[in-house]
Design a protein around this nucleic acid. Structure first.
Lengths: 118, 118
DNA sequence: CTGGTACCTGGAGCGCGCTCCAGGTCAAGC
DNA sequence: GCTTGACCTGGAGCGCGCTCCAGGTACCAG
């Protein structure tokens, strides 16, 4: 039940202050609580949600789709849709990994080729 | 020793005509041979090189670095540097795969969590 | 010969995901 | 009280990697 300043959150999540504000502005993050003078005060829940956002972004989900997921999460009774969305994304991450592994094999082949030359 | 029209190359490589011209313009691809009337005629070598470019791009190498690699490849006696560049990239691909795998575990955890709920 | 399609050029435009800026308010240490 | 630095807002700008466009030329089927 702690509260965090923007600076702390930036440090913990690895997101910039600008990105944090940007995410809030476009509706990826619900309006963050404010102190009486208008400064943001993030909650543990906010931090948890930002972790999820980071997971989705790092794995290449487009912002649009993340917004769709955020919208679903605001509404109970969307569990099935959330599962569907995440599963679809999981498949794309799986494919992405497979592609990288296969291209990495080419890369290593090329390196070995150079090694044999030099 | 075949020759290919731009359309054929686009189909084979999965790159758009615009992207092919773009790559040539920025020096990723050496000037392609032309017919007497000025149309491009790609060689097997061009196709092979485009495969390499695709491998590097798909694995997330920035265009700038690809240009650097292309420059090295125009100059003999840069084998060591090419190896260094590719190895560095290979490391980054390895890290990328590891990150994706770890984030994918989170993703699957989240999905399982929803499954237990619904 | 004619039409349709593929190709040519230089340069502008775009979508994404931030990132930066100006001009201001607030909080905390000296 | 004063300074310093963290934070606020709205909106403009940016870097990347293409993508599109206008206006023109060449090839090919019928």
């Amino acid at each position: 039940m702690s509260r965090y300043t923007p600076g702390e959150v930036a440090q913990r999540t690895g997101l910039s202050l600008d990105t944090l504000r940007y995410y809030e502005r476009i509706g990826l993050l619900d309006d963050v609580d404010r102190t009486p003078t208008g400064r943001r005060e993030y909650s543990d829940d906010d931090l948890g949600w930002l972790e999820i956002l980071r997971c989705l972004r790092e794995t290449g989900m487009p912002i649009q789709q993340m917004r769709r997921y955020a919208d679903l999460c605001r509404d109970d009774g969307t569990i099935a849709e959330r599962i569907a969305l995440l599963e679809q994304h999981d498949d794309s991450v799986r494919d992405q990994i497979a592609m990288l592994q296969s291209q990495r094999a080419h890369l290593r082949g090329k390196i070995d080729f150079y090694r044999a030359q030099g």
